[in-house]
Amino acid sequence: MKVSLTVNGETREIDAEPRLTLLDALRDHLRLTGCHTGCEHGVCGACTVLIDGAPARACLLFAVQADGLEITTIEGLAPAPGELSLVQDAFCETHAMQCGYCTPGMVLTAHALLRDNPAPTRDAIVDAISGNICRCTGYGQIVEAIELAARRLAGSNAPAKGDAA
């Protein structure tokens, strides 16, 4: 059946069996391969996307259920080709990854957290990312990246003071 998906602000129509998950639709039909397949049963968080701004597991949604919803994938975060969002840059600064497989899900989760809670405590950060399994980092540098991003976010909102941003 025809499904129309709105991803990163762009609406595209695909022809999908009902059983096609949003994860497979993004990856195989729209070639947005930053959304990763880890478990396909809703535990690892590698497939995290934002749906109407809130993190969700793309493997737990059939594409047909998603038509009309606003979907954001990792490909929709960088402000321009070659540039990084503030969160992405913070992840690079603290080396909040190794293999990079969980990273898109972590970055999207961090974006959503900081939008709702610009100054999260360490506990709030830990809780926010606890639905995303990272097998490489032990989470330490991911937490640091989000803390760093929050600090920079606070700085960027401060009244302009020279070139402090």
């Binding site: 990856r27 992840f91 990273t103």
Partner: peptide, 21 residues
């Protein structure tokens, strides 16, 4: 110093086997 690989990973541009068709 930053780890150069990270730049492609944070934007979802890693090239994993399932991305290759």
């Amino acid at each position: 110093r930053r780890v150069r690989e990270d730049r492609r990973f944070v934007v979802g541009k890693g090239r994993y086997i399932a991305d290759l068709a």
